[in-house]
Design a protein around this nucleic acid. Structure first.
Lengths: 167, 167
DNA sequence: CATAACATGTTATAACATAACACTACCAGT
DNA sequence: ACTGGTAGTGTTATGTTATAACATGTTATG
């Protein structure tokens, strides 16, 4: 394995929601959304989403595949990538470019341009609002260019990791 | 090839600098920087930088390797990745995460957090200032987290591509 | 029930990236 | 000059991430 993605520790910014609640809510929200949009929330799609929302940390496609395999699903790469693409299209999953990994959306009811804070030591990731981040997309439209999608990732070290150890 | 990276067309935002000038200036700037910092601007490093600044478009590591091979350098993967890492450390090259590609820095004299505008049709990329982008990092520091590096990429369609064809 | 659209399965391979080690050149201290 | 350290490059092998292409199954609909 190139990286471990274990997530030993935790910093405040990463803990501002009730995760048990988040899980149930998230499942309900995605169910409602799919119903409303007449999309199929198939067992495979449900499983992939559950794997992601359960851990609520970024998982690589091949980690998701392993989990699928353990749960009796097919685990050849296109399976994961297709479902992930689908869930991303509808905003329930985001890709963390800096980690080549995928994470369940923390704010599925907003139509938002997500921003992520990534600890390079514990690899915990928080999805944040523009407001909280101190970042602001005052006008996401640039002259002569129509922006369709924004990627914003902030990498650094969380308090817990920085206080815990030698850099 | 998975992708072509041809860059057929052009939109205003992508053309706001004199590229001939940019090339010479850039070489001079990097030379001065290396001199000042007592770093070696070796033939290999120079060549990689030239390849990138010459095209001034994002190139994949393996495209750079091909170019190195054509110019008589070794072209095994670590060669490119090592030099690219080195040039990135010093801010002369950036990685475009959305394309798994590398591009020479357009503003090497700023110490900046670059932002990129990427046309998903022609794959042209522009590096922009915070100000021009309408984006602003009002306070890149987040409570309980020290941001070391930001990734900002805006993907969409440039005017030329959108006016040229059916979406 | 035909058929179109969608979903999943499978094989193979492409594209991207790093580990580990070898070799050379150069410089500093003795 | 010898020694040892550092930096740069070269090489082999392999690890990791992602997609193409095609087959099969499943569902909704006329």
């Amino acid at each position: 394995m190139k990286k471990k993605r274990e997530g030993k520790t935790t910093s405040k910014i990463f803990d501002d929601h009730d995760h048990g609640m988040c899980f149930d809510d998230a499942i309900e929200q995605i169910e409602n959304y799919f119903l409303k949009k007449n999309l199929q929330f198939t067992p495979l799609r449900r499983k992939v989403f559950e794997i992601l929302i359960r851990d609520h940390k970024p998982l690589g496609a091949y980690e998701i595949l392993e989990a699928l395999g353990r749960d009796g699903f097919s685990s050849s790469p296109p399976i994961a990538y297709r479902v992930l693409d689908f869930l991303m299209e509808h905003g329930f999953v985001h890709k963390i470019q800096g980690l080549n990994a995928f994470i369940a959306c923390s704010h599925p009811n907003h139509s938002h341009s997500p921003a992520f804070v990534i600890c390079r030591k514990c690899e915990k990731v928080a999805e944040i609002d523009e407001k909280k981040s101190g970042i602001s997309f005052a006008s996401p439209n640039i002259k002569n260019f129509e922006v369709e999608k924004t990627t914003v990732e902030m990498t650094g070290v969380c308090t817990t990791c920085s206080s815990a150890a030698t850099i």
